[in-house]
Design a protein around this nucleic acid. Structure first.
Lengths: 249, 249
DNA sequence: CAGATAATTTAACATTTATTATGATTTCCG
DNA sequence: CGGAAATCATAATAAATGTTAAATTATCTG
């Protein structure tokens, strides 16, 4: 883990992604709080279940998992995945104590938001507070979707749906839909996120490949047939509450 | 569905349950907004996915499920269950559009909170706004637990954990731990909440009975061995953020 | 209370997924 | 580049859960 003190000029441009729910004016207010950045290597545990946090993280680059000890399996279970432009643990601001670990899955860059100045900022800006609230509620909506996916879908549909979500959230994060996207998750990560074994994930990915939907290989997700993938995974993006489609004055 | 206009004297006493996160003073401020009550019969759909809501509900009595169309099964999937003293769809206040149905599972009494007066109240009270935020975050924590439970636990543990949560949340709702509690869920409801079939739920309940953990019958949950039930279900209540153990000044 | 309806139990069987193990491939690092 | 360590693929087998259907019990309604 390394820490670097950056000039907040670096933050003067609002990153795209979920944080886009904030207006430019609102971004201009938080940016000054985001001066301290950190970097994590793949597999680092950033915070632990039970920790009392006095700050939250905004993910700038990479992928982060929120993870809990698994019921009976050897591995952990991912209860959430965070993409660039998303707050990782904003819920720690009102909730204080974490109910899950926070783990970096790739090389990761984050900006730190201390709760104290954030509180002062929010005290003076009700609209802004409501936006942050909203962003944690989008998180919750995604949780609900994960409950449905992992409870009610078979392996093939489940993995297809998971990859569709990955694609959609990457599109939100980078503001552009791509046919080929960087995919740094291992099959064991997909397993942890979908509640399957990595062996079965391997089988399932082969099936998706043979269906002509997509190929996961070499750190890349190649989408051959997005529509087909969505169909197999019964994917509808409404639950993501993507910023542009949701903006209210 | 019936509507009755009540004198808000009826609301002058703060119900126990999750709403206990609010201080007495805070309760005194919302109570005047809770003058309109409604009643629902079992199985009524209270609101639908996609609905734009201008109000939220506080559950006074009964059980409510938040439900989504199931991936591939015939039935629905429950993504959340609400107990008395909990807000049912407070997230609709910042989020506006619902991503799930709201369904009454039993005879149900709710109080309606219109968003407009709530907004005005919150504008003038930052602390209170933060408390409501917190309550939706407890919801999210429970969602995460459901993801883990339905992704990583086998049927026996999964049902045991579900029943443990039911017990714990009823204890929070009524402020007292009981050996026998009213249980109005059918086995198909347990199935919808745990991602199992009702046939398998039946088998699993028998197993729990034979283990000497608990008996579900005749609208009643009889807990023979709470400790044993918790052990089988690997249940730890921290994720519920029960009010009394969490109060900050 | 009787009949109708809904909920539960059970069994036989089918399917899905997990488990274990081994070999192939890729990635990492010196 | 070359060897070690991860990661991935595949197969054989086992275990868990789903499916269907029928019998039983409980609940509701008149």
């Amino acid at each position: 883990m390394t820490t670097e003190q950056l000039n907040y000029n670096d933050m003067s441009v609002k990153p795209s992604g979920m944080v886009d729910h904030l207006s430019d004016a609102q971004w201009a207010k938080v940016a000054p709080l985001l001066t301290q950045h950190m970097h994590f290597a793949p597999g680092e545990v950033i915070s632990r279940r039970g920790d009392l946090l006095d700050h939250s993280l905004l993910l700038l680059d990479g992928l982060i998992a929120r993870s809990v000890p698994s019921g009976q399996r050897a591995r952990n279970t991912f209860v959430a995945l965070q993409f660039p432009g998303e707050f990782v643990d904003l819920h720690a601001f009102p909730l204080k104590r974490l109910d899950h670990d926070v783990v970096s899955l790739t090389d990761t860059r984050v900006a730190i938001v201390a709760h104290e100045p954030l509180r002062e900022l929010l005290n003076g800006d009700v609209e802004f507070a409501r936006k942050l609230w909203l962003m944690t509620l989008v998180d919750a909506s995604i949780h609900r979707h994960w409950v449905m996916r992992n409870s009610a879908m078979r392996a093939l549909a489940r993995v297809a749906n998971f990859l569709s979500e990955f694609d959609a959230r990457m599109s939100i994060a980078y503001g552009t839909e791509r046919q080929s996207l960087p995919f740094s998750l291992r099959q064991t990560d997909i397993a942890d996120a979908t509640g399957l074994t990595s062996v079965h994930v391997s089988r399932t990915l082969r099936e998706l490949r043979e269906h002509g939907c997509c190929t996961v290989a070499g750190g890349e997700l190649l989408i051959h047939d997005r529509k087909g993938l969505h169909k197999v995974g019964m994917f509808e993006a409404a639950y993501l509450y993507a910023p542009q489609s949701e903006m209210a004055p």
